[in-house]
Design a protein around this nucleic acid. Structure first.
Lengths: 325, 325
DNA sequence: TGTTATATGTCAATCGTTTGACATGTCAAT
DNA sequence: ATTGACATGTCAAACGATTGACATATAACA
């Protein structure tokens, strides 16, 4: 790889001059500028960003830690974050924690060693203290860590309420709610809070089932849904905490000979693209994924530039009614 | 952020000594080692990988360029690549080209500026010459660029053949094939070659429709499928070049009142997780995505270490029969 | 007593780039 | 003839870490 010295030598100018055209500072004649550019072209020169980062103490890289990109919610989020970061001249290191605390910790340290300008945390298997050592800008998605670390989430309580009320409104009398691991301190647990509140408020019978949200473990979902329907054949409403789970619910109900939405009404969460690939299309609570991604990046930027920022960022959700309710 | 100098000063040893414990070289007493580690802990010191990369001329970063992580095939591939890279101590910069040649070119240059140790190209909107300037290790997925750049693909011809023959075997007499943009020089076009060969060989009527493979443009797929069924109501077999398109085919057929698999048999491609979220589950040609991801990374490593490697890497596919045929 | 393994230190160069300070021109306008 | 804008050069320090060469010191062993 050619260096700035090679360019200088070939173009017959000083390194300083090359640096000046590269960074557009000081006086440079058009002739020299052209000559330097031509030489860079010839040598296929690309300035070494590693050296620049070292000097500038800024890498223009952010890290994104999520459980797994294969989950539609995270793959869409990742896409938005990356795109938005790219527009602002930043790159993104992707880290799949696979919900493994050791790996998650390891990733955080790796990102620090690589001096990323900020970390977006979408995976939360660690204890709060573990984050304290993080000096770099950080923003969490769907988890509130401390009063000075900004977080973004959609309005989970409202979402849970919306879902629960819609099922009741549609006439459901026994509703199951499939959620993630409530032991993890995630804000998505508030969906469950809202669900329970509505159920007890309206006096509707309900069942809550926790899962570990591992999309890969397809069998887990199949089993859970199957058992649910066996143990509670009279269920007529299901509120799943993701569209994918809702999809499994649809399949299990159909397999059990129950019609959707006539016998059982199902509502998912997220409104990922996949919700429309399924048949029937999944009714769902839409999270503004694009906005979450952009806001996450913006909050990193604001911290980097020491601009003021909001710590609590709760985005609105909306009900998208499709064919499963 | 603390530097190695800070650690040395606080621990009351020389910088060289700290470096020695860090890199495990030379003689170090247990006492000193412990003292240094303790100090690093206290200062929350993480060695600056940027400085290391600069000196070592190796970043331990690879770049992955794909059209869009939101597409299940790529999100699964990304997950495998990242995981495998992580196991070997590498990080991954993710780049979504969005099928934009300008962006793709820009990404390649960005990755070069950042001195990544290798690039895995899964997006192919550029002309062959554009890749010639790439001095770093590179491997392409599903596209053959030149005789010295290794590529990986699954056996597309065999996959197309398998799909076509299975539909005919199941009694289809008029088969539509929905493929990607054949203008792009991708190896997946060989599926279409195989399809056509089988069709003409067996004398079965067929229709070929190109799409631009943009998963986000849901309406495009809906429209295409709808028009296809209107113009050719007698179609009884569909071979889609992805499971997602197959999903849309299922929906359109059902909407048109055609039963699956009785009236129309549908086969997809890839065998992504989503193929099993759909109902009925999609019959498909399985690509070994995990293996593709690992091999891509391995080929980068081999080039890096100047080890011998295979240029042509064609992985086997298999037919997974589910409910749509 | 001398030899050797162990332990640590000093020093300087290196990776590729940026930047400030300063010097030395040329050329045109006053 | 003087001034000032423009153009380019030289030089050195800095970013944070690694590494080889070399010096020095202690402890153990023969």
């Amino acid at each position: 790889m050619a260096t700035i010295h090679d360019v200088a030598k070939i173009a017959n100018v000083s390194v300083t001059t090359v640096s000046r055209v590269l960074n557009n500072r000081g006086y440079i004649s058009e002739a020299t500028r052209a000559k330097v550019y031509k030489t860079m072209e010839e040598l296929n020169y690309q300035p070494n960003e590693i050296a620049r980062s070292l000097l500038r103490k800024q890498s223009n890289v952010i890290g994104l830690i999520i459980p797994n990109v294969s989950h539609p919610f995270f793959s869409e989020l990742t896409n938005y974050v990356e795109n938005y970061a790219y527009e602002q001249g930043f790159k993104m290191l992707l880290c799949n924690s696979q919900m493994d605390p050791v790996k998650e910790k390891d990733y955080i340290e790796m990102l620090k060693r690589n001096r990323v300008d900020g970390i977006i945390m979408g995976s939360h298997t660690l204890q709060v203290e573990e984050y304290k050592s993080l000096s770099s800008p950080i923003v969490t998605i769907d988890r509130q860590i401390s009063s000075d670390i900004p977080y973004i989430s959609s309005d989970n309580y409202a979402g849970g309420k919306l879902a629960a009320e819609m099922l009741i409104h549609k006439g459901c009398t026994k509703i199951a709610h499939i959620c993630g691991n409530l032991g993890l301190r995630m804000l998505s647990n508030r969906r469950t809070d809202a669900f329970q509140a509505v159920m007890s408020d309206k006096g509707v019978e309900s069942i809550i089932i926790q899962t570990d949200m591992n999309v890969f473990d397809q069998e887990q979902y199949e089993l859970i849904m199957q058992r649910l329907l066996e143990e509670h054949p009279d269920i007529d409403g299901i509120f799943a905490t993701s569209d994918i789970i809702a999809g499994y619910a649809v399949k299990a109900c159909t397999a059990a000979g129950r019609r959707i939405p006539d016998d059982v009404k199902i509502i998912g969460y997220d409104d990922v693209n996949a919700a429309r690939w399924m048949m029937p299309e999944i009714t769902t609570i839409k999270q503004p994924i694009k906005q979450i991604g952009q806001m996450a990046f913006d909050l990193i930027m604001k911290q980097m530039n020491a601009e003021p920022f909001e710590v609590d960022n709760i985005l609105p959700v909306s009900l998208i009614e499709r064919a499963t309710t």
